[in-house]
Structure formats: C-alpha cells, structure tokens
Design a protein around this nucleic acid. Structure first.
Lengths: 211, 211
DNA sequence: CACGGTGGTTAGCGCCCGTTAACCTGACCG
DNA sequence: CGGTCAGGTTAACGGGCGCTAACCACCGTG
C-alpha cells in the first residue's frame, strides 16, 4: 500500500537487500534445524541485527517461510514452463523438452539446496491457505512434467507417469544429501550423472509396460 | 540394570506392547509435524494416556526419537546384509544381490513410510553421540550398496557409485510422497515400478562412463 | 492381608519462544 | 533547522513446552 511512490533510491535498494539477506539466512537455518528448531533471535543474529528487528521486514516467522516456499514453487513452475515453451517453439522433439526440464531442475537443486530442502520438508508448517497455494504451484509443476513425460512415452498411463515424476523428483532432490560432505567431485559431472540417471529411470518405467 | 529377572510374564508383554505403541504413534506424529512440532502431551494422547506418563517408558522426548532412528537404521543395515549374504550364498550373480537390496528397501519404504521420513529428515535433532551412531549405521548401509553396485558395474568409480546410491535412495524414498493421497494404485505394481526405475537409473549411471 | 512395584494421574516449575511496546537514532527533505 | 520516517534497540508479556514432584490405584506375591 505505502510503496507506490518509492521515495529515495538508495534506501529502497538497501531495504530490499536486507529482506533478501534475511530470507537467505532464514532458509539456511530452516533447512539445517527445521522451522520449529530456529528462533527469531537466531535469524536476526545471522544477519547482524537482533531479534524483533525482523518485524520491520516481515509480519512474523511464518511469513518468512511462506515467502520462501511460494517463491521457490513459483520459480520452479515458471522456469519449467518457459523451458518447455522454448523447446516447443524451436520445433524440437518431446525428448528435448524433457531434457530441458531435467536440466533446469538439476540446476535449481544444485544451486539452491536449502530451498529444495524446505520445499519438500516444511510445507506442512504453513497456514492452511498458504499451504494450499504452494501445493497448487507444486501440482502445476508436476503436471507440466507429467505432460512432457507422456509426450515422450505415450504408452505410459497418467497415474503411473505421475508416480514416475515423483520418484525422479526424489532422485534429483537427493542432491542435498550428497554434495554436502563430499565436496562434490565436480558440478558439471554431478549434473550430468543425475541427468542420465533421471532419463534412465523414466526409460525403465516405460519399459515395464511391455513386460 | 533392573530387567535381568523379568518377573511376571503378562506384565512384561503388556509393557513392551505399550512401548511399541508409543513409538509407533510418535513416529507418525514426528513424520507429520516434525520433531519440534509435536508435544509430549500430544504423543500421550495418541496412545490414550496423558503427557508425563510417557516418562514411565522413556527417559524423554529425545530418547523416543533416538530409539526410532537407531532402530530403523539397524534394521535397514542388518536386513540388507542378510539379503546380500543369502544371494551370495546361493551362488547367484551380483545382479541378484542388487535386486535383493532394491526389493528390501522398497518393502521397507512402502511398509514404514513414517520411519523412512524420519530417517532422512530428523537426524540433526539428535544429541551429538546418538547422531554419530545413526550416521555410522547409515553409512554402513550405504557402503553395502556401493559394494554391490560396484560388483554389478565394476567400471563405476567409487565416488560416483556412492553418488548414484544416494540418488537411488532419494528415488525409492520418494514413496512417502506419492502413496499418501492417490491411494496407491496397487502395492505390487508400485513396487515393481520403483524397482525397475532404480535399476534403470544405475544402468544409466554406468552408461555415462562410456561417453 | 499387608505390601511393593508398575503405570497411571494432576499440579506446577522454569525456561524459551514469538510477538508487542516503547523508545532511540540517523538520514533525508521542505 | 525542525520533522518525518525507516530501521534499529531493549524490556516485557503471555503462552506453551519438557520435565519433575507428589500422589494414587491396581495387582500379583509371601
């Protein structure tokens, strides 16, 4: 309401930077200790301010988690849609769209590990209406995948395709577990490995149909 | 200390049943709301007693989570070892041992969904020494898989094999997400699908070596 | 029949947490 | 130069939490 006429340039930019800084640290802490395991004082300390000062930027602790989850779900869905649209506009075969989806998800999982963790761990900590919104975004992202997968493997029944996509999400999101301690051997190498494993899993799921 | 001479038969059995009942409900609640999101009164209410009565059976809330995580990790490791030993004793090829591992893990993931959830979500809520114990059990289970996988795909370097096993764990553990709402189409069908996807992922990981 | 132990109960304590209140400061602006 | 306001501070409050204390009922045994 009161941000229509952004007054001074520098103050606005610093304010936005502070907000993003808080969100980044909050996502790190939530991913490490769980939403209920992190106190507001802890989040404040992580950005150099202390405790209640966070309420100058967010309505409350819940609001931070909500913004994180809505943001990540939206980015995943929109990024996926854009990649699929680009592949289709280029007149490429369905396989190329699936490649683009897989590559995009892997980039996301490798670059924003904390957010991926929150994304499938802390959904139930949201208020009812926010949870519904995030779930809708997640479902739209999933259905996008299902359509593309069924384009590549038309014989796969929808329910089974949905299960496959869930399973591949699990495979790709396992990134958070492996690259933590082992100082990932090489980013591109890991990405390529995950990419081929995901495609191999889909292919094997389709092969099952012809048993 | 005081349990050497188990006195009355019936009281012992009911006591053990009550303990297991508590653990079952606690795992369900922890999986649903997170360790910090569940109160002891809530756990007590789930088994028909109220609040502090739990302290007749467990030293505290932490002890319940510890027992759950140690139990599941031990079961996974020992079950895996037994299956591999049986396959090798029968003189079957390495592929059979991998099949047995995959099938065992799928059974576990389908039958004990809550425990699988806790297993990779709430590890960091343990006290330092307990966490180390659970992590060691998990690592032994993982290394068992790595050995078997390398038996099937000898050209796969160890570090990469380890990453593959992590990824496949993620794929198999994604069960918890899919069978919740969709009233899983059919248990055996789901198990078969996951089984083939896991094997397909491994095969694709090996194929990458020959790029 | 007294009695000890097992497994409950309710009351309450101390602590921590999310949030609000009241106050302060420094930058920008008329 | 005075005023406004964004963005901090500390103090405090209310509630919920894990856990302990104190008490009690039942039940099998000497």
């Amino acid at each position: 309401m009161s941000e229509q006429h952004a007054s001074s340039g520098s103050s606005t930019s610093t304010r936005l930077a502070r907000r993003e800084q808080i969100l980044r640290e909050a996502s790190r802490l939530f991913a490490a200790h769980g939403f209920h395991g992190v106190g507001v004082d802890e989040i404040g300390a992580a950005v150099g301010i202390s405790g209640p000062a966070l309420y100058r930027h967010f309505a409350g602790k819940d609001a931070m988690l909500t913004e994180l989850l809505v943001g990540i779900s939206t980015r995943l869905r929109d990024g996926g849609r854009q990649r699929v649209a680009e592949a289709e506009a280029a007149g490429e075969p369905p396989r190329a769209a699936l490649d683009a989806l897989v590559a995009g998800h892997i980039d996301f999982a490798l670059d924003d590990r904390d957010l991926i963790t929150l994304h499938d761990r802390e959904l139930d900590r949201l208020r009812e209406d926010d949870r519904r919104q995030v779930r809708q975004l997640q479902r739209q992202y999933l259905e996008l995948w299902v359509e593309v997968v069924r384009g590549v493997y038309p014989a796969l029944p929808p329910a089974r395709a949905r299960a496959c996509v869930h399973a591949v999400f699990g495979l790709l999101n396992a990134t958070r577990r492996l690259s933590r301690p082992t100082a990932l051997p090489d980013r591109d190498e890991t990405a390529g490995l995950l990419h081929r494993m995901a495609l191999g899993a889909f292919a094997a799921a389709d092969a099952e149909r012809a048993r």
